[in-house]
Measured scan of single mutants.
Amino acid sequence: NEDWLCNKCGVQNFKRREKCFKCGVPKS
């Protein structure tokens, strides 16, 4: 499991996502 947490809103995103699904901030 290599899901990632958004640095802005803290929601968990799937590994394949390049941007946060909730707030749209790019993966860092």
Rank of each mutant, 00 (worst) to 15 (best):
Lys8Gln: 14
Gly24Tyr: 11
Lys19Arg: 08
Asn13Asp: 13
Lys22Met: 02
Asn1Gly: 07
Ser28Pro: 15
Val11Pro: 06
Leu5Ser: 11
Asp3Pro: 01
Glu2Asp: 13
Lys15Cys: 09
Leu5Gln: 15
Trp4Ile: 03
Lys27Ser: 11
Asn1Met: 15
Lys8Pro: 15
Gln12Ser: 07
Glu2Leu: 05
Arg16Glu: 13
Phe14Gln: 11
Asn7Thr: 13
Lys15Asp: 04
Cys9Thr: 01
Cys6Pro: 04
Trp4Leu: 05
Cys6Leu: 02
Lys8Gly: 11
Pro26Tyr: 15
Asn7Asp: 13
Cys6Thr: 01
Cys23Gln: 00
Glu2Cys: 10
Arg16Ala: 12
Asn13His: 07
Asn1Thr: 09
Arg17Ala: 14
Lys27Trp: 07
Arg16Trp: 06
Lys19Glu: 11
Phe21Ala: 11
Pro26Lys: 07
Leu5Asp: 15
Asp3Arg: 00
Cys23Ala: 03
Val11Asp: 02
Glu2Ser: 14
Lys19Phe: 10
Glu18His: 03
Glu18Asn: 08
Arg17Asp: 03
Cys20Val: 01
Val25Asp: 13
Phe21Val: 05
Leu5Asn: 15
Gly10Ala: 14
Gly24Asp: 00
Val25Ala: 12
Cys6Ala: 01
Asn1Cys: 10
Asn1Ser: 07
Val11Tyr: 15
Lys19Ser: 07
Cys9His: 05
Lys8Asp: 12
Lys15Leu: 05
Val25Pro: 03
Cys23Lys: 01
Trp4Met: 09
Glu18Gly: 05
Asp3Glu: 08
Lys22Phe: 00
Lys22Ile: 00
Asp3Gln: 06
Glu18Cys: 01
Arg17Glu: 11
Asp3Leu: 05
Cys20Asp: 04
Val11Thr: 15
Asn7Arg: 12
Gly10Trp: 12
Asn13Ser: 03
Asp3Cys: 02
Val25Ile: 08
Trp4Tyr: 06
Phe21Ser: 09
Glu18Thr: 07
Lys8Ile: 04
Leu5Glu: 11
Asn13Trp: 01
Asn13Glu: 04
Lys19Val: 08
Asn7Gly: 09
Arg16Gly: 13
Gln12Glu: 07
Cys20Gln: 01
Lys19Gly: 08
Gly10Phe: 13
Gln12His: 15
Asn7Trp: 10
Cys6Phe: 02
Lys15Gln: 12
Cys20Thr: 06
Cys20Lys: 00
Ser28Thr: 15
Val25Glu: 13
Val11Gly: 09
Cys9Gly: 03
Asn13Leu: 03
Val11Gln: 13
Asn7Glu: 15
Asn13Gly: 03
Lys22Leu: 00
Val25His: 13
Val11Arg: 09
Gln12Leu: 03
Val25Gln: 12
Gly24Cys: 04
Gly10Asn: 15
Cys20Ala: 01
Lys15Val: 07
Phe14Trp: 10
Glu18Gln: 11
Glu2Tyr: 09
Cys9Asp: 03
Val25Met: 13
Asn7Phe: 12
Lys19Met: 11
Cys23Trp: 00
Asn13Lys: 01
Pro26Cys: 03
Gln12Met: 04
Asp3His: 02
Cys6Tyr: 09
Gly10His: 15
Pro26Trp: 06
Phe14Val: 04
Val25Phe: 07
Val25Tyr: 08
Trp4Asp: 07
Glu2Arg: 07
Asp3Trp: 08
Cys23Glu: 02
Lys19Cys: 10
Pro26Arg: 09
Pro26Met: 04
Leu5Cys: 08
Cys23Met: 02
Lys19Asn: 15
Cys20Trp: 00
Glu2Thr: 15
Asn13Ile: 02
Cys9Ser: 01
Cys9Met: 04
Phe14Asp: 12
Val11Ser: 14
Cys9Lys: 00
Arg17Gln: 10
Asp3Val: 05
Asp3Ile: 10
Trp4Ser: 06
Lys27Arg: 10
Cys23Asp: 02
Gly10Gln: 14
Gly10Tyr: 14
Asn7Lys: 06
Arg16Ser: 14
Lys27Leu: 11
Asp3Met: 12
Arg16Gln: 08
Gly24Lys: 10
Cys20Pro: 02
Cys20Ser: 01
Asn1Trp: 02
Gly10Ser: 10
Val11Met: 13
Lys19Asp: 15
Gly24Arg: 06
Asn1Arg: 07
Leu5Trp: 03
Cys9Trp: 02
Glu2Phe: 09
Lys19Tyr: 00
Phe21Lys: 05
Val25Leu: 09
Cys6Gly: 03
Lys22Glu: 02
Glu2Trp: 05
Arg17Cys: 08
Trp4Pro: 04
Trp4Asn: 07
Pro26Val: 06
Arg16Thr: 15
Gly10Asp: 10
Arg16Val: 05
Glu18Arg: 06
Lys15Trp: 11
Phe21Arg: 10
Leu5Phe: 14
Gln12Thr: 12
Gln12Ala: 08
Lys27Ala: 11
Asn7Pro: 15
Leu5Tyr: 14
Lys8Tyr: 05
Leu5Gly: 11
Lys27Gly: 09
Gly24Pro: 00
Phe14Ser: 07
Arg16His: 07
Leu5Ile: 15
Phe14Gly: 13
Asn7Ser: 12
Lys19Thr: 13
Cys20Glu: 02
Leu5Val: 15
Lys22Gly: 02
Glu18Met: 11
Arg17Thr: 14
Asn7Met: 03
Gly10Ile: 12
Lys8Arg: 10
Lys22Val: 01
Gly24Ser: 06
Gln12Asp: 08
Lys22Ser: 06
Val11Ala: 13
Glu18Ser: 07
Arg17Gly: 13
Val11Asn: 13
Val25Thr: 14
Arg17Met: 08
Val11Cys: 00
Trp4His: 07
Lys15Tyr: 11
Phe21Met: 10
